[in-house]
Write a protein that binds this DNA or RNA. Structure first.
Length: 334
DNA sequence: CGGTTTTGACCCGCGC
DNA sequence: GCGCGGGTCAAAACCG
């Protein structure tokens, strides 16, 4: 019987400290009544003091983390703006390239792979850093299907740094993609994934994603064609099934841009804890237009997530109660 | 239940 | 003509 009462009391102790945060000043009697089994009201007060001290320390730590997060968000916002600028510039560059490529393809339409090689060489000339001379045969489709000829020349490459352990081959560019094939190519043991824009067939854009053979942490995404619909970030989309490829605009990644040419390198390895649910992602997307609000939102969201997380609560309670019981043992020994 | 992913089969261009 | 290799299809599995 004594044991059970002790057990019950200790369980309560696990929870009370959390309630101190909300109702510490007025709950003095209630707290003391919970500790009545210990018959040590004086030490309870001391322990409360120690707990409050500990909580203050944790709060300070949390503040520092929040500041760090804010700095990260600022960096992210800055880089994101740079990305947007660069992207808009690249669109212009690509359009110029389109006209050039169209001319070339008109003369060599029957030799799609050769034309393709030339476009690849162009791309590699623009970014001679990581290019695993990947044979993309985008022009093949267009010559096979003349109706797509108007979109064929728009080819751009994006180099995305990801975790090596992440085998998903997902490049978060904000658009929604449907995977329609995967192939292991000869020159690269890593499989190449084929995606179509989920707005297909009305949107003819395709992309190929494959890890670089030279640096497995880099994923090479080759985009073919041009989206004929607005960026999903700008759409108040309703449900849209699975948004697994969602959104450059919301992912707090750090980005780095190649200075010229239609290639972009994104570093997705430095992103903070990604939001776990689609709902969160959608709400983030809605706020992505205002960087300050975004930062604030990230901070709030992280704090909210932590406070909502039962594991975090349990761990905190365990840590506090552990310290508490430890002190109890010490006082009992006295 | 509808959309997406997986994956083996198939198609087609290219080189020999 | 044949084999190779990249790209696509489509049925089944999977998922929310």
């Amino acid at each position: 019987m004594e044991f059970t009462s002790l057990l019950n009391t200790s369980l309560d102790l696990n929870h009370k400290p959390l309630r101190f945060l909300d109702e510490a000043p007025q709950s003095k009697q209630e707290v003391e009544s919970d500790f009545i089994g210990f018959e040590r009201n004086v030490t309870v007060k001391e322990e409360r003091g120690a707990l409050i001290e500990e909580l203050n320390r944790v709060s300070a730590e949390n503040k520092k983390l929040t500041e760090l997060l804010t700095v990260m968000c600022e960096n992210y916002t800055e880089l994101r703006n740079q990305l947007m600028e660069q992207t808009s510039k690249n669109i212009g560059i690509d359009n110029n390239n389109n006209s050039n490529n169209n001319n070339n393809n008109n003369t060599a339409a029957s030799r799609k792979r050769k034309a393709d090689q030339s476009s690849i060489n162009d791309a590699n000339n623009n970014n001679n850093n990581i290019g695993p001379s990947e044979s993309s045969s985008s022009d093949e489709d267009s010559s096979k299907k003349p109706r797509e000829e108007h979109i064929k020349a728009k080819i751009s490459r994006v180099y995305v740094r990801t975790e090596v352990s992440d085998s998903s081959l997902i490049v978060k560019d904000g658009y929604q993609w449907r995977k329609y094939g995967q192939k292991v190519t000869r020159d690269n043991p890593c499989p190449r994934a084929y995606f179509k824009c989920s707005f297909a067939p009305s949107c003819p854009v395709k992309k190929k994603v494959q890890r670089s053979i030279e640096d497995q942490s880099i994923v090479v995404a080759t985009y073919e064609g041009e989206h004929n619909h607005p960026h999903p970030n700008k759409i108040e989309s309703t449900t849209s099934g699975s948004n697994r490829n969602l959104t450059l605009g919301t992912v707090p990644c750090s980005t780095s841009l190649s200075s010229s040419g239609p290639t972009i390198t994104l570093d997705l390895t430095k992103q903070p804890k990604p939001s776990s649910t689609q709902e969160e992602t959608r709400s983030l997307r809605g706020k992505s237009d205002a960087p300050e609000q975004l930062q604030q939102y990230f901070v709030e969201q992280m704090a909210s997530n932590l406070t909502k997380d039962p594991n975090f609560k349990a761990a905190l309670a365990a840590a506090i109660s552990g310290k508490f019981l430890q002190q109890n043992n010490q006082t009992e020994k006295w």
